[in-house]
Design a protein around this nucleic acid. Sequence first.
RNA 1: GGCCCCAUCGUCUAGUCCGGUUAGGACGCAGGGCUCUCAUCCCUGAAGCAGGAGUUCAAAUCUCCUUGGGGUCACCA
Length: 494
Amino acid sequence: MVSEKVRVRFAPSPTGYLHIGSARTALFNWLFARRHGGVFVLRIEDTDEQRNKTEALAAIFEGLRWLGLDPDEGPEQGGDYGPYFQSERGPTYAAATAQLKRSEGIYPCFCTKERLAQRRAQRGAGGDASWHYDGHCRALPAAEAAARVAAGEPHTWRLKIPRPGATSFNDLIHGPTTVDHADVEDLILLRADGTPTYNFAVVIDDHLMAITHVIRGQDHLTNTFKQVLIYEALGWTIPAMGHISLILAPPPHTGKLSKRHGGAEIKEYQDKGYDPDGFVTWLAMIGWSFGKDEEKEPIPREELIANFDLANAGKANARMNPSKLDAISGRHFRAAPPAEFARKIDPYLRAAGFAPERLPAGDGALALIAECAQPRIDYLAQAPEVVRWAFEDPAPEPDSVKALAETEGAAAFLEAYAEDLPLEFTAPEDLEAHARGFTTTRALKFGAFAKAVRAALTGSLRSPPLFHCACLLGRDETVRRLKHAARIAAGGKA
RNA sequence: GGCCCCAUCGUCUAGUCCGGUUAGGACGCAGGGCUCUCAUCCCUGAAGCAGGAGUUCAAAUCUCCUUGGGGUCACCA
C-alpha cells in the first residue's frame, strides 16, 4: 500500500442513466487516481440481466466523457486486468470458490427460499424487523452435508463467519469502524445455480484487478463488513476502504437523491448545457473542500487534482444546492473566451429556431449575441431567451407600453430618432455615439430616451445593451419598430 | 425495529485530531456602488456551533446521554 501503484475503480451497473451520486463517486476515484499518479479503472457490473444494455452502457460512457473522467482501463480502453464486464468474469471466480470449499470457509445451505422468506416474515411481524440466517445448515454434520451435495440436492454456499467475533476496518474517511458478528449473517456467496452473489464477486474482482483503494458511497458501509470477512476467509490483502457521504435530495424532499426527485441524472445537466468543468467543481464541492477558503474564480481541474485529499472529504451527507451549480457554471462561462462561448451557444440558438445568420447583422450576429448572453446565462439553454425579441415580433410587456405612453415627448423623439439613424449599422459603439449626440442636440435625458427606445425595440424594459439590440435588428427593422412605438406613444393602439 | 454512519449560518463548508478565533469563505437573501435597463462586476449587511450533563482556568473542539438526519438489513447490484 505504501509503494505499490494506486489502482481505483468505478463500478456502476448499467441502469440506463448515470446518477449524480455515481458520477460523484467516479469523480472522487478519478481525482484520487490522478492525484496519486494511479490508474482509474471502469468495471461494468452487468450481471443483473439488462434489457437495453447497449443504451444503458452508452449513458455511462457518455456521462463520463462529458465530465472528462477518462478511465485508464475499461471496456473501451482495455487493459491487463480484464474482462471489464462483470458478466464476462465468470471463469475467474472458480479458483476462489474452490479455495473456500477446501478450507471450509463456506458451507452448503439447503434451506429453500420459501423457508427463509417465511422465517423473515415471522420475525418481522413479531417485532424484530431484522432477521439473520440462523445457521440451520451450518450445524449439519459434515458427512450429511457432503452426501446431500453429492446427491444433487439444490443448495447455496454460505460464508462461515467466526462466532463469536467482531470485524473492524479503518475507513479512509470515517476512521475505525466496527461491527459485532452477531449482527452479520452467514451470507450467501454462491447461489443455487453456482454464480457468485454481489459481495463475493466484488471481492474477487477487486482482488484480481489489484485494486488498492475502494472509494464508494456510504450506502456500501454495511457491505464492507461482509466483504472484509470474505477477504479474511480468502487470506487476501484488504484494500483501503473509503466511504464518501451521500447526496441528499434538495429541500422539499427527504432521503438520498433519487431519480424521482428530478435533477438526478447527469444527462439533464448535459442537455441544459452546463459547463462541464463548472459542473465537476460543483460536484466536487459537495461533501469535499479544499481545506481553504473557496475562491471566486473558476477552479481549473488541475487545481482540483493538486488539492485532492480524502482527508478533506466530509463525513456528513450533503443536500444538493442547485443554485450554486448555476453560479459556478455561469462563472465558468463568463471566464471563457468570447469566440469559444459563441461556438457553444450556437447549437442552442439553432435548436430554438434562432439561426443567427437569419438576422440582418448576418455573419456578425453570433458574436453580438454572444456578447449579450455571456454575462446573462448560467447554462447554454438559457441563451435563446436572451435574444428571443430579435427573432420574433415581441408582444410588448404591459410596463413597456406604459412607459411609452408616459414618457414625455416619446412619440416625437422616437419618430425623429428613426429618421436620424445612420445609414449603416456598423458597431454598437458607433450607434451609441450617434444616439448620445442625438439626445444632446435635442436636450433629451439619455436615460428616458433609452427607456423608450428599449421598449420600442424589445417590447421590454429589461434587455441586453440597447445598441447591441439595434445592431442585431438592423436598420430597417429598427426603424419599423421605432415608428410603430411612436404611434403607441402618441396614443394610438398597436 | 436491529445494526452502522453522521450533526457549524437556509444550503455547501473552514475550524474539531494537538481545547483559548471578533467562528472564516461560497451559494442564496437584503442594501449600496457602477451603469442606457437587466445582467455582469465591486462593496456592505443579516444569518450558525441541535439540546443537556460532565472534564477543564477555558469546550464548536474531549466524554456521555437525548434529539434529529441518513444508510443498510435479498439466492439485486
